[in-house]
Design a protein around this nucleic acid. Structure first.
Lengths: 239, 239
DNA sequence: AAGTGGTCTAGACCACCGC
DNA sequence: CGGTGGTCTAGACCACTTG
């Protein structure tokens, strides 16, 4: 439908197939605009996408090049996701187990994270995730009840995010995350089967809706030996 | 100079000053294009920047809104940086101390990370960073000697990245990072003053040049009680 | 000097929202 | 239905690299 996306897809395919080899020039924008029968602006928008993906880089006056190792680093949807584990680890057997599911008034920290008043109730959910039968992560999650009406334990055992998308029609606008190494709590020792001196990888996150409303506050505590966070950071503007 | 950047700057300023309040509509693109005396396409490009920064969001048929909490989350240049600590912690007293500085042939892991052959030498640098006199992080860094000719211990004690930019004229294209919680090594205990059961936050990174050439491989081992990683993740496309 | 990518225009059509 | 933002065009000028 959208031309510049289709062109980006075709060029990306050519890079992946090796038709446009790594570390070489690709055809210039005028040539491509003729090939695809579009204006040069449209070709440029397609190139902008591929540059954001880290596949190509451009030198004014010189041309557009395929990056070295373009294919290596093209893991496009990695750890920058809040889709929950269900999607991230497709292929493994992922089980969720709700440990507790309550409603309460938020404490100071959660009030601030979710921008709530003292008497705005929140769900307090603790879930243990198992991968191939072994404990993987404990997630402590808080949603304002006003934003997620009708949450049930049954939904928790499926995918909360799917429910939010499908049934409530809400979309996400971004997230703020903080990653730390911490010492294990009693909770961690009990459910994650941590030893006293095993570190824990904690990911604290605040997820926002499209309009900026804080929507979820959570702390994920991961076993140190099975979980790491990866980030692919592509430089978008050269100085 | 560049119109769409100047317009983005002006609109951003108005948001920051509260002239365009959070959670309200801003003037439509036609109105703005008249105000600034430019075409609508140019206004849209300015808006694209602000949307990428997470300040605004747009609804087709409805208008352009300032996000709730737009000002809160507008920490634009946070942990997605490879500028070294010198810039990140301006205001504190940051000292660097080179523990070792050698040249060697790379082992298997480093060969792969930096895409080198068996006999391509690398610098092997170990540095301890102190903040306000207290140990903060140990960095184990490897550069291919071919890419950073003329590195000296003196440069290490200033800023390696400045040297690379200024003297070698190279620019960065991105980085791949992996964050883990690990147990302390003997090195960590000695230099970071870690206790036996203190966790360590390890950030492993591969930095690339603009053309995709791997350029630096490093492992930063941080004291768990003074360092965390923050990531601001803005959703760029709505489905 | 020729060729490249970056910016910008004036206008067009479309999809979508709200009245 | 009018107004919004998204896409697209054909052409122009500019900054820059390379021969």
């Amino acid at each position: 439908m959208i031309k510049y996306e289709m062109i980006a897809n075709k060029i990306r395919e050519r890079i992946q197939k090796g038709e446009y080899a790594e570390d070489t020039l690709i055809p210039d924008q005028v040539t491509l605009s003729k090939e695809f029968g579009v204006s040069r602006m449209t070709v440029k928008k397609a190139m902008d996408i591929l540059a954001m993906e880290g596949l190509i880089f451009r030198k004014r006056g010189s041309g557009t090049y395929v990056k070295k190792n373009a294919l290596l680093n093209s893991s496009d949807s990695n750890a920058m996701e809040y889709e929950g584990l269900t999607k991230q680890l497709s292929g493994y057997k992922v089980e969720g187990k709700a440990i507790s599911f309550n409603v309460e008034f938020p404490d100071e920290k959660i009030r601030e994270a979710l921008q709530l008043e003292k008497n705005d109730p929140v769900y307090n959910i603790v879930r243990l995730r198992l991968v191939d039968g072994k404990p993987y992560v404990i997630e402590h999650t808080y949603f304002p009840t006003a934003l997620v009406p009708g949450l049930t334990e049954e939904i928790l055992n499926k995918s909360v995010y799917e429910f939010i998308h499908q049934n409530l029609g809400l979309s996400f606008g971004g997230a703020y995350r903080k990653i730390q190494a911490v010492k294990p709590s009693e909770y961690d020792k009990k459910y994650l089967a941590c030893q006293e001196n095993d570190p824990v990888l904690e990911v604290e996150q605040i997820v926002h809706l499209e309009d900026g409303t804080p929507f979820e506050y959570s702390r994920s505590r991961n076993r140190y030996d099975t979980r790491s966070y990866t980030i692919v950071d592509i430089q978008r503007r050269q100085k």
